[in-house]
Computed example of a mutant assay.
Amino acid sequence: MISVVIPVHNEERSVALLYDELAAAFAGDGRAWEAVFVDDGSTDGTFGALTRLHDAQDNVRVVRLRRNFGKAAALDAGFGEASGEIVVTIDGDLQDDPAEVPRLLAKLDEGYDLVSGWKTKRRDPITRRVPSKVFNAVAGKVSGVKLHDMNCGLKAYRAEVVEGMQIYGELHRYIPVLAHYRGYRVTELPVNHRPREHGRSNYGVERYVRGFLDLLTVTFMGRYRHRPLHLFGGLGLLFSLLGTAILCYLTVVKLLGNAIGQRPLLLLGVLLVVVGIQLLSLGLISELITSHHEERTGGADRAARLVDEVLR
């Protein structure tokens, strides 16, 4: 079973066309599939169109959110309703080409857990293409996951990748990063991208700003969630050593008979030492909280989630 999760917002004219294209793409595949549409608080006739499609097709499921919560919440709701062993996500605006889905599934069969689409020839205005290139470059540098198109809506996953994954805010952009940090095999595949024919884009520059802040969250949670002292302790040691070096230098200056009471460097040295000690203390407290949480939730369960396979 393959579950295709489709978040939609004001896409009344697109949903039926998208289903027909998906049906054509799966026609020669032979595997059962379902379409899980998530209406993210549409204000046009999208839900009515989805209702008619649901009545006409046996493999269509519809989830309606109370209001527009954003793409991350829509995907999270769709993942919760999907019943397939493989989950495919695709945007509802018809810019992603459903004919590419079999290629993504074939790539999964090569042993990958997540295959992300890469829009090599993106059919969007330059005002979206340029910020997206900058964003993807920064995201790859910060997260360590080198993908050309982190935010492509066309992706294929093994269901276990998204099970239990908490997606909120703008974290849907970083599902490949979250999967990578959890040990899953991630790759990308060039896919066809088409110009928008219906509706209008809901993305603005402010989403890139929020997305960058969420990138910091994802990177911290992925790299330092179970070892916070490595981050806070490292910064604390660095600041403390710099502050100590400055104070040692000023001590020598003082012993040579020079006044240091009015020098800004003295204040900087004291400040660095104090901040360094605070960061070290914060790291130790975070380690205690993390250790306590692991004891309560069960370290064995977490270890089981990290296991890929066992040969006995």
Rank of each mutant, 00 (worst) to 15 (best):
residue 1 M to N: 11
residue 6 I to A: 04
residue 15 V to E: 01
residue 25 A to V: 02
residue 27 A to K: 08
residue 29 D to H: 07
residue 33 W to E: 04
residue 37 F to A: 01
residue 37 F to D: 01
residue 38 V to T: 01
residue 47 F to Y: 14
residue 56 A to C: 06
residue 58 D to S: 11
residue 60 V to W: 01
residue 60 V to I: 13
residue 64 R to W: 00
residue 68 N to G: 08
residue 69 F to L: 15
residue 69 F to P: 02
residue 69 F to R: 10
residue 72 A to F: 05
residue 74 A to Q: 00
residue 77 A to F: 00
residue 83 S to D: 15
residue 85 E to L: 08
residue 90 I to S: 03
residue 92 G to S: 02
residue 96 D to A: 14
residue 97 D to K: 00
residue 100 E to D: 15
residue 101 V to T: 11
residue 101 V to I: 13
residue 114 L to G: 02
residue 116 S to H: 09
residue 117 G to L: 03
residue 121 K to W: 05
residue 122 R to A: 08
residue 127 T to A: 14
residue 129 R to C: 08
residue 135 F to D: 07
residue 139 A to W: 04
residue 141 K to P: 00
residue 142 V to Q: 03
residue 144 G to F: 06
residue 147 L to P: 01
residue 149 D to N: 13
residue 153 G to L: 01
residue 157 Y to P: 02
residue 161 V to A: 06
residue 164 G to S: 10
residue 165 M to H: 07
residue 165 M to F: 07
residue 170 E to F: 09
residue 171 L to D: 12
residue 175 I to K: 05
residue 176 P to T: 05
residue 185 R to Q: 08
residue 187 T to V: 06
residue 188 E to P: 04
residue 192 N to V: 14
residue 192 N to H: 10
residue 195 P to M: 02
residue 197 E to R: 06
residue 198 H to P: 03
residue 198 H to V: 04
residue 202 N to T: 12
residue 202 N to P: 09
residue 217 T to W: 11
residue 219 T to H: 15
residue 226 H to M: 13
residue 228 P to W: 00
residue 231 L to T: 07
residue 236 G to W: 04
residue 242 L to G: 07
residue 245 A to M: 14
residue 246 I to S: 03
residue 247 L to Q: 06
residue 250 L to H: 08
residue 250 L to S: 06
residue 252 V to H: 08
residue 255 L to A: 11
residue 257 G to F: 09
residue 259 A to Y: 10
residue 259 A to F: 10
residue 261 G to Q: 14
residue 266 L to H: 05
residue 267 L to M: 10
residue 271 L to G: 07
residue 273 V to K: 05
residue 281 S to K: 14
residue 285 I to G: 06
residue 288 L to Y: 12
residue 293 H to R: 15
residue 293 H to E: 13
residue 294 E to I: 13
residue 295 E to T: 10
residue 296 R to I: 14
residue 303 A to L: 15
residue 307 V to F: 08
